[in-house]
Measured scan of single mutants.
Amino acid sequence: VTLFVALYDYEARTEDDLSFHKGEKFQILNSSEGDWWEARSLTTGETGYIPSNYVAPV
Rank of each mutant, 00 (worst) to 15 (best):
L18V: 05
D9H: 07
D9A: 07
E46M: 14
G34N: 12
L18A: 02
V1Y: 13
S52E: 04
F4D: 00
E33P: 11
E38V: 15
G45F: 08
L29P: 05
W36I: 08
R40A: 05
V58A: 09
L18I: 11
H21P: 05
N30M: 07
D9W: 04
A56H: 09
L7K: 05
P51T: 02
T44V: 02
I28K: 04
L18P: 01
P51A: 04
V55N: 01
G48A: 02
R13C: 13
F26G: 00
N53P: 06
S41I: 07
W36H: 07
L29S: 05
A39H: 00
G34R: 13
N53K: 13
E24L: 02
T14R: 15
L7Q: 05
G48R: 02
S31C: 12
E38F: 15
K25P: 05
A6S: 05
D16M: 14
A39N: 00
D16A: 14
N53S: 14
W36K: 12
T43C: 12
T44H: 04
D35P: 10
Y8F: 11
T43Y: 10
L18E: 01
V5S: 04
G23Y: 06
Q27K: 09
G48D: 00
D17M: 13
K25T: 13
V1K: 10
Y8L: 08
W37N: 01
V5W: 07
F20H: 01
V1S: 13
W37M: 06
P57C: 06
I50S: 00
I28H: 01
E24Q: 07
L29W: 06
T2L: 13
L3N: 06
R40P: 00
Q27E: 12
P57R: 08
S41L: 07
N53T: 12
Y54T: 04
V55Y: 01
L18Q: 03
V5M: 09
Y49T: 08
G48I: 02
L29T: 07
A12L: 02
A56E: 10
E46Y: 11
Y8G: 05
L18G: 01
E46R: 15
L42G: 03
A6N: 00
L42R: 04
E11Y: 10
S31A: 14
G45C: 10
W36R: 15
L7G: 02
V55P: 01
Y10V: 02
I28W: 02
W37C: 03
L3A: 07
S19H: 06
I50N: 00
L42F: 07
N30H: 08
E11R: 10
A56L: 08
W37I: 06
L42K: 04
E46S: 10
V5G: 03
T47D: 04
G45R: 05
P51C: 07
T44M: 02
L3Q: 08
I28L: 07
S52A: 12
D9N: 09
S31T: 13
V58F: 13
K22Y: 06
Y8H: 09
L7N: 03
S31G: 10
S19Y: 03
G48M: 03
S32F: 11
L3G: 04
D9R: 05
L7S: 03
P57M: 09
T2D: 11
S19A: 07
K22M: 08
W37K: 03
S19V: 03
T47P: 02
V58T: 08
S32V: 10
S31V: 11
D9F: 04
G45V: 01
S52Y: 08
I50A: 01
S41F: 03
N53I: 10
E11M: 12
E33Q: 14
L29N: 05
G34W: 13
V58C: 10
V1T: 14
S41H: 07
V55K: 01
L18M: 13
S52W: 10
T43G: 07
A56D: 05
Y10R: 04
T47L: 08
E11G: 05
N30W: 09
L42P: 02
G34Y: 10
A56W: 09
A6R: 00
S19R: 04
V5L: 06
R40W: 08
Y10E: 00
V5Y: 13
V55R: 00
P57Q: 09
D17G: 15
D17C: 10
S32I: 11
N53V: 09
L18T: 02
S19P: 06
I50W: 00
D16I: 14
L3M: 10
N53L: 10
S41P: 01
W36D: 03
S52H: 08
Y54A: 10
V55S: 01
K22W: 05
K22I: 09
E24F: 04
F20Q: 00
D9M: 04
Y10Q: 01
T44N: 06
F4C: 07
E24I: 02
T44Q: 03
T2R: 09
L7V: 07
I50K: 00
Q27F: 15
E24W: 09
H21R: 14
G34Q: 14
R13P: 08
A56V: 13
K22L: 06
L42W: 08
V58H: 09
P57S: 07
L18K: 02
D16T: 15
W37H: 03
S32N: 11
K22D: 02
D16Y: 15
T43P: 02
T47K: 12
P51E: 02
Y49N: 08
W36Y: 11
T14D: 12
G23S: 04
A56Q: 11
A56K: 11
F4V: 10
N53D: 10
Y49C: 08
E15G: 14
P51N: 08
T2A: 11
T2N: 12
T14W: 15
F26P: 00
D35C: 12
L7T: 04
W37E: 01
D17V: 14
S19Q: 05
R40Q: 09
V58I: 13
R40F: 10
P51I: 03
S31R: 13
Y8D: 07
L3F: 11
G48E: 00
K22A: 11
I28T: 02
G45H: 08
T43W: 14
I50D: 01
P51D: 05
K25Y: 15
V1N: 14
W36Q: 07
N30D: 11
A12Y: 02
E33N: 15
K25E: 08
V5Q: 08
E11T: 13
S31W: 13
